[in-house]
Amino acid sequence: MLGLGLLLLSVIALPAPASAHHILGIPHYKYGTDYPQIPFVEVQATVEQYDMAFTYFPGTPKPGEAVRFKLYVRNRDDATAFKEPLTVSIYQKTWIGDDKLLVEDLPITVGVGPEGNDYKFFYTFDDAEAYEVRLNFPGSNGPEHIPFPVGIGETDDRPLIAGAILLLLGAVVSVAVIKRRQKKRAKQRPAARTRVADEAAIDGGEVEALGSATASEDLESRRAS
C-alpha cells in the first residue's frame, strides 16, 4: 500500500510548472464625474508587461453623439509609454451569435506635444446599444484582441419595473379572488348539507347514509330528478 502511495505521489506530485502566462485581465471600470471635467468611463486592462487605460467621453454617451476615445499603454517594466501604431475594430454586441462588425482595423496613432503618449479617436454610434472596441495589440505570442466595452444610451427600466409590479399585483389579486370564492363555496357547503338533511328527514331516509363528502352531490342529483 505504501509503495502504491509513493508511486502515485511520484507521478502526481511532480509539479507541472504553474508559471504565469500573459494574462488579459478582465477590464476594470471607472466612472468619473468630478466637476469641471465631463463624465468619463475608464476601462483598465493588462497584457503581458503592458498596463492599459482606455477612456471615453462623455461617460454616458447618447446615440448620434460623438464619443471621444483615448488609450494609454504603459510598459510596467521600464515605465515608458507604448507609441507604436495600433488598430482597433468596433463591434455591436449581440445576445446570441456573432457580434456585428462596424469598423475593421481602424488605425490609431499617438498624438503630439504634451498629449503625445495617448492614442485618440472619435466615433459616433447611431443606436442605443452595447458596443465593444477591440484593440489589436502585438503580444509576444501573436496579436492580442483586447475588448473594451462601450455602452451607448440609457435604458428605460420603467416598463420592466412596472411589468414586474403589475405581475405581482395580478398574482396577489387573482389569489385573493380565488380564496374569496373558495370561502364562499365552503360557507355554502354546510348550508347545502343542512338542506339535504332536511329533505332526507322529510323523505324519511337515513341522513347518515349520505355521508358528508357526497352530501352536495346527492342534493344536486335529487334536484335534477
Binding site: 471607472k30 475608464e42 460623438a66 494609454y72 498624438g111 503618449n117 479617436f121 472619435f122
Partner: peptide, 15 residues
C-alpha cells in the same frame, strides 16, 4: 465618423 484628435486636454497617463 472617425478621426484622430490632436487636442491638448487631460492625459490618461496621469490616471
Amino acid at each position: 465618423n472617425c478621426e484622430c484628435d490632436k487636442g491638448k486636454d487631460m492625459t490618461s497617463e496621469e490616471v
